[in-house]
Amino acid sequence: MTATIMPTAASITVPSEWRDYFALTKPRVMSLVVFTGLCGLLAAPGHINPVLGFTAVLCIALGAGGAGALNQWWEADIDARMKRTAKRPLPGGRMERTSARDFGVALSVASVLIMGLAVNWLSAIILAVSILYYAVIYTIWLKPRTPQNIVIGGGAGAFPPLIGWVAVTGHITLMPVLLFAIIFMWTPPHFWALALFVQSDYAKAGIPMLPVVAGEATTRRQILGYAAVLFPVSLAPWWIGGVGAIYGVATLVLSGLFVALCLPVALRRSVEGDRMKPEKRLFGYSVLYLFALFTALVADRLILGQGLAA
């Protein structure tokens, strides 16, 4: 199969490789999705056959990959206008648009069917909802229309631990909903920190990111606001007795540091030629934060034997 570079008049024919298909799945985003999904599965009370557990995590990964491919199919024109995304397979002219769409649909459908047949249908339904949420509600509907796109769209990335948990238990309880809420509240400060230092790129692509539409000061205030809400939400699993002290103490420190790193971001204003160090530091820490928090959750469950069906 060959692809024709879309945006330019001079068509260049370049064969698409397996690496291009792999790149469509957004492997870096997928790693966080797989990790949080696996942690939800490991922290859930009860037992799942290791083969079925592996299948559940694989389906979460495939579903995320399918949603990522559909996102790149829909946003190929926008990606071409942004430095960060201009070299992706579609704007880079290494793949036809329909191939990306078909690949995304195939991965999405396969992941939901395998999840339903091998694990349980409730987790398959939530997986399907998460894919539609990301591909339709976030990518097609909200992202180009509202500066609050990240807030509601963040829900898409919050599903994996819920799916992992339900794969084990077969039903939804308060604990996995709290895990969902943690990622939901974490997403706005995480993305807006990024949006602050790639602001010009989003503006050029016509995406109404909060810094572009509402201004830097509002964005900085909202980053701190969401971090302040994230603090009690992240500790809620401990307060309701769903997890033990390992998670509680670790999260107290992690969330405290998160708020502390948001403070300088909220209180400062960028100047000409600003290197945006506090924003970059916050973005880097936010990724580490989520990995550490979910690691603490699993450690708590494995060491203290908590993970009650709260």
Binding site: M1, T2, T13, V14, P15, S16, E17, W18, R19, Y21
Partner: peptide
């Protein structure tokens, strides 16, 4: 270009 096409096709088939 033919070589590149063949290489890409072989890689994709192997991956599939």
């Amino acid at each position: 270009e033919q070589d590149a096409l063949k290489r890409a096709r072989r890689g994709r088939n192997l991956a599939l």
